[in-house]
């Protein structure tokens, strides 16, 4: 009996050794597909507590993230913005592949928390209110940038980042580049390319590039021929002094479609 126990242990070790290359390959395949990227470190342990960390280690990352998300929602109802930011950080660390968590975290920070900071009646100094608001804008952008690093194939996060850059930072050049990246990703809706053109038109020094981009979209047909795109193109044709024959209203271009 005893030798059987010993030999079974030895066999188990041999089996473990023979599995090493298979495990390494599976691990590499998972990393290549951007799976199992959660970093379970001491920093996370401090944030979620011992029981939470044990749950995360035992393969219950997603239920734990869901529970924390409910806590973040309660914090939102109580307008506890700081607690919300911390909880969002933990949720996105636990579930880095969830686009929804990155997107919603960024939205809460860049919109809700930023507006609340600006309307904070407890803070009499306007300068400090503006500073706090900018801090929340930055937090929103940060969530989206980290979300993109974890989900490089997601056009949704690029679109949201473009909107934050456009509406909150007034960085039209950055927004244009971000919308362009979104448009190049699989499944991206047609508005991504239009948004890129609109922002490029506001970016100093890139007016000609914007015009060419928008004109290409116009030539794609009715799907892209929205009133805002046509109006902007007409306006740019005047500003860039485009020859009459090359303008979108000329018969040559009308015929192409």
């Amino acid at each position: 009996m005893k030798w059987r126990k010993t030999s079974s242990l030895a066999l188990l070790c041999l089996f473990g050794a023979s599995l090493l290359p298979i495990q390494a390959r599976l691990n590499n395949d998972a990393r290549a597909a951007h799976l199992r990227k959660t970093a379970l470190n001491l920093n996370l342990r401090e944030r979620i507590g011992q029981a939470g960390f044990l749950a995360a280690l035992s393969g219950f990352r997603s239920p734990l993230a869901a529970i924390l998300w409910i806590q973040a929602h309660t914090a939102w109802e109580n307008t506890e913005w700081g607690r919300m930011a911390g909880t969002f950080d933990t949720v996105t660390t636990l579930q880095p592949r969830s686009i929804l968590y990155w997107d919603m975290s960024a939205w809460h920070m860049a919109w809700n928390a930023a507006v609340a900071a600006m309307q904070n009646e407890k803070q009499p100094s306007e300068a400090l209110r503006i500073r706090s608001q900018r801090e929340y804008f930055r937090l929103g952008r940060d969530f989206l940038e980290r979300g993109i690093l974890n989900n490089p194939d997601s056009y949704q996060l690029y679109v949201q980042l473009g909107i934050v850059l456009r509406d909150k930072f007034e960085d039209h050049c950055g927004a244009a580049d971000t919308f362009l990246k979104a448009a190049a990703l699989p499944g991206a809706p047609s508005y991504c390319a239009r948004f890129a053109g609109y922002e490029m038109a506001k970016c100093p020094g890139r007016e000609r590039e914007a015009y060419e981009h928008l004109r290409q979209l116009y030539l794609q047909g009715d799907k892209q021929r929205l009133p805002s795109l046509i109006n902007l193109l007409r306006d740019m044709e005047k500003r860039l002094d485009i020859p009459q024959g090359e303008r979108i209203d000329s018969s040559a271009h009308s015929d192409k479609t």
Binding site: L35, R61, S62, R97
Partner: peptide, 10 residues
């Protein structure tokens, strides 16, 4: 533990 990532849409 593939379900965590599957739920997230991966």
């Amino acid at each position: 533990n593939l379900t965590d990532d599957i739920i997230a849409g991966a």
